[in-house]
């Protein structure tokens, strides 16, 4: 420990630091406890949720992948998730552009519309969508699931893409148009490449939003069309089958992979920025 630390941190601070550390650990355990419980449980050898497990097996994982109910739920969730990610990335990016650049106040007020499904209690939004989809014959369909979840996931896309659009130098667009590019060409050749990392992050978040969404899906699901969260919910209500623990572990795994993708995109960007500043430093020295 350096002398500076000794001087600047008053005595008794060691206790304070220990307390702070203990608090952090407590909060982490509090947040992670359900996960720390579920992952070991998914490897239990018994047909029950007894914790800690007395024997170990991977049979709940093979059950998850072989039981048609679970397998169909996973397939549906993946299809819906990818469709929602694509659709909400396109819709959200365009909405962010419109709200960022429009001169009309009404367009900028679009924020309210985009965030309404996020702010209102989902149960209410779900009920509204349910009755609407009954009329339109969209309940129990993949299309219905995709449309409902896209409304939800687009808001995340708008937030992420708007932040990156604000960072795009307007002079780049001006330069593009002064050089003879039509507005659509400027958008395609200048703006899109600048916001591409943010758009890919938004895509991952939209997929994760869909992947974990349960409330809207509960309304729209039918006995023959269920997403994984819906199947998990129903399973927990009706059986003591530990397959749900395996499903949870799979879910956690997907989220972790998604976050790793996001983190690596960001790491790539900051590494590039570092390289740039290093080069600038070298230029100054030269």
């Amino acid at each position: 420990m350096s002398a500076v630390d000794e001087v600047s941190v008053p005595s008794g601070s060691r206790v304070a630091r220990l307390l702070r550390g203990a608090l952090c650990v407590a909060i982490a355990i509090w947040l992670l406890a359900p996960l720390l419980l579920l992952v070991p449980l998914s490897f239990t050898g018994a047909q029950s949720f007894r914790f800690p497990p007395t024997s170990w097996s991977t049979r709940w994982y093979s059950n998850l992948l072989s039981d048609p109910v679970w397998r169909d739920a996973i397939t549906t969730t993946l299809i819906v998730g990818i469709a929602v990610a694509i659709l909400s990335t396109v819709v959200g990016t365009l909405a962010a552009m419109a709200m960022q650049r429009s001169r009309w106040r009404i367009t900028r007020a679009g924020w309210l519309l985009v965030f309404a499904p996020q702010v209102l209690p989902l149960v209410i939004v779900g009920a509204g969508i349910y009755y609407l989809f009954l009329v339109w014959n969209l309940t129990g369909t993949v299309t219905g699931l995709v449309l409902a979840q896209t409304a939800l996931a687009s808001a995340n896309v708008v937030v992420i893409v708007t932040a990156s659009l604000r960072a795009v130098d307007t002079n780049l667009e001006r330069a593009g148009s002064s050089l003879g590019a039509r507005p659509a060409t400027v958008f395609r050749t200048v703006v899109i490449p600048q916001i591409r990392p943010a758009v890919s992050v938004a895509f991952v978040f939209a997929f994760l939003t869909s992947f974990g969404e349960a409330v809207l899906s509960l309304y729209i699901s039918s006995p023959t069309l269920k997403t994984l969260p819906v199947q998990m919910f129903e399973s927990s209500q009706t059986t003591t089958d530990p397959t749900i623990a395996a499903a949870s572990a799979l879910n956690i795994g997907i989220v972790v992979v998604g976050m790793l993708i996001v983190a690596s995109v960001q790491a790539m960007r900051s590494r590039r920025a570092n390289r740039q500043s290093n080069r600038e430093g070298a230029q100054v020295l030269r």
């Binding site: 330069a175 002064s178 507005p183």
Partner: peptide, 28 residues
Amino acid sequence: PPHKRNIGMVFQNYALFPHMDVFANVAY
């Protein structure tokens, strides 16, 4: 509109397209 004026413009902050190399910038 600006893209039909055939006027060259140079900005204080250069406004080069960061995702294009020098050749692609000048060829734009």
